[in-house]
Simulated assay, not measured.
Amino acid sequence: MMDAVWLGLGGLALSAFLSATVLPGNSELALGAFLYQWPSWWLAALLLATLANSLGSASSLYLGRLAPRKELTGRALGTLQRFGPAALLLSWVPLLGDALPLAAGWLRLPVLPCLVWIVLGKCLRYAMLVLAIKAWL
């Protein structure tokens, strides 16, 4: 039984990490499936999904810092220029959220504030999902 829980947590972590990159992943479904099977593990699932999804965004932030500087345009860039690291609170939003950490890295925004806003946004999102899933179950 415990092996299955750990395997489920590993799958959730992998899905959450990939979902925060440009690679396909669906952490919402993985979280729902995990909580359906092991509802008492909600806190571990919340923390792990937040951590893994935040690490995925952090890897995008790092990759953005490696990119050569050239002219960028677009919605993500405009949002970042207007709000700075706080815009990364929206890094969980589909499509836009994948671009925000890349653009933040490219703009060389300060890493620590970026990471704080990323983690906060991801945690709030997963907390709302956990509450909704628990209410549904």
Rank of each mutant, 00 (worst) to 15 (best):
L80F: 05
Y62K: 03
S59N: 00
P94E: 01
A20Y: 04
V119H: 03
A13G: 01
L80W: 03
W106R: 06
L46A: 05
A127Y: 03
A16F: 04
L80T: 03
G121D: 05
P101L: 08
L14I: 13
L102F: 05
G97Q: 09
L9C: 07
P85I: 12
D3N: 12
A58S: 13
S60P: 06
L109E: 03
W38A: 06
L63E: 02
A87K: 00
L129C: 13
K70Q: 13
R82E: 07
L109Q: 09
L109F: 09
A20V: 10
L35P: 08
A16Y: 09
S59E: 00
L12N: 05
D98G: 06
W136D: 09
A20R: 03
R65S: 15
Q81A: 05
A4M: 08
L131Y: 13
T79Q: 08
L95Y: 06
R69W: 11
R108K: 15
W106Q: 05
V119W: 04
M128K: 05
W117D: 06
N53W: 07
L96A: 09
L48C: 12
L18I: 12
R108Q: 14
L46W: 08
L29Q: 01
K70M: 12
A87F: 01
L131T: 15
W92M: 03
A86C: 02
N53C: 08
K134S: 13
R69Y: 14
S40N: 15
P113K: 11
G10W: 07
A132D: 08
V119L: 11
V116W: 11
F83Y: 14
L129K: 13
W6Y: 15
L14E: 01
I118G: 04
F17D: 02
L7Y: 12
L61R: 02
R65C: 13
D3Y: 07
G74H: 02
L23Y: 07
E28Q: 06
P101S: 07
L95S: 10
F83V: 01
G84N: 05
L47C: 15
L18Q: 08
G121W: 06
T79L: 12
A135F: 14
A99D: 09
G32I: 01
S40C: 14
S54Y: 08
V119E: 00
L7K: 12
S27D: 11
A58I: 15
P24T: 00
A13I: 00
A52R: 00
Y36I: 07
L61T: 11
